[in-house]
Amino acid sequence: MRLRRSIAAVFGAALSAVVFVTPVDAQPVRTGATTTYQINARHDGSLVDTAVGAPPLSQKWSRDLGGNVSYPVVAGGRVFATAASPDGYGTVLHAIDAATGEDAWAPVDLGGTYWWSALAYGGGRLYAQSDDGVLTAFNPATGAKIWTTTLTPQYSFTSPPTFAGGVVYTGGAGSGGTLYAVDAADGSVLWTQPVENGDNSSPAVTADGVYVSYACEQTYAFDPKSGDPIWRHRTDCSGGGGRTPVLADGGVWIRDAGMPSTVLGTTDGQVRGSYEASGRSPAPAFDGRQGYFVDEGVLQERHSRTLDTRWKFEGDGRISTAPIVVNGYVYVGSATGRLWALNGATGQSVWSTDVGAPINEPDEQNVSQPLTGLGAGGGLVVVPATHLLVAYGQ
Results as ranks from 00 to 15, higher is better:
residue 30 R to I: 06
residue 340 W to I: 05
residue 66 G to P: 02
residue 234 R to V: 08
residue 335 A to I: 04
residue 199 D to H: 07
residue 157 F to L: 12
residue 159 S to T: 15
residue 67 G to V: 00
residue 368 S to A: 11
residue 106 A to M: 10
residue 144 A to H: 10
residue 138 F to A: 05
residue 378 G to C: 04
residue 17 A to H: 12
residue 6 S to F: 09
residue 82 T to Q: 00
residue 23 P to E: 05
residue 234 R to N: 11
residue 121 Y to I: 07
residue 11 F to K: 05
residue 5 R to K: 09
residue 285 A to G: 04
residue 273 G to I: 01
residue 260 P to V: 11
residue 107 P to Q: 12
residue 213 S to D: 02
residue 386 T to W: 01
residue 71 Y to T: 01
residue 361 E to R: 15
residue 121 Y to N: 02
residue 202 S to I: 02
residue 343 N to H: 11
residue 151 L to A: 11
residue 373 G to V: 03
residue 7 I to L: 15
residue 29 V to F: 06
residue 217 E to T: 03
residue 228 D to M: 13
residue 303 H to Q: 15
residue 224 P to T: 09
residue 162 T to P: 05
residue 56 P to Y: 07
residue 90 G to W: 02
residue 137 A to R: 01
residue 1 M to A: 12
residue 39 I to N: 03
residue 78 R to Y: 01
residue 95 A to R: 00
residue 29 V to D: 03
residue 391 A to V: 11
residue 378 G to S: 12
residue 204 A to H: 04
residue 367 V to H: 07
residue 50 T to A: 15
residue 235 T to L: 10
residue 309 T to Y: 05
residue 350 V to H: 08
residue 200 N to W: 10
residue 209 G to K: 03
residue 257 A to S: 09
residue 28 P to C: 12
residue 4 R to Y: 12
residue 324 I to V: 15
residue 124 G to C: 08
residue 132 D to S: 14
residue 29 V to N: 03
residue 277 A to W: 00
residue 196 E to P: 02
residue 20 F to I: 14
residue 198 G to T: 12
residue 112 G to N: 10
residue 369 Q to D: 05
residue 96 I to F: 04
residue 348 Q to E: 05
residue 260 P to M: 14
residue 340 W to M: 06
residue 296 E to W: 10
residue 99 A to I: 01
residue 204 A to T: 06
residue 281 S to W: 07
residue 394 Q to H: 09
residue 286 F to V: 05
residue 364 E to F: 12
residue 179 L to Y: 00
residue 290 Q to M: 14
residue 229 P to F: 11
residue 391 A to Y: 05
residue 151 L to N: 15
residue 95 A to S: 12
residue 113 T to F: 15
residue 288 G to K: 13
residue 119 L to S: 11
residue 276 E to T: 13
residue 328 G to S: 15
residue 319 I to K: 02
residue 188 S to Y: 11
residue 326 V to H: 03
residue 347 G to P: 00
residue 72 P to V: 03
residue 48 V to M: 15
residue 306 T to W: 10
residue 16 S to V: 09
residue 160 P to C: 09
residue 131 D to K: 13
residue 277 A to C: 06
residue 240 G to Y: 04
residue 266 T to R: 11
residue 14 A to P: 02
residue 345 A to D: 08
residue 228 D to V: 12
residue 340 W to D: 07
residue 226 S to C: 07
residue 284 P to N: 09
residue 216 C to F: 13
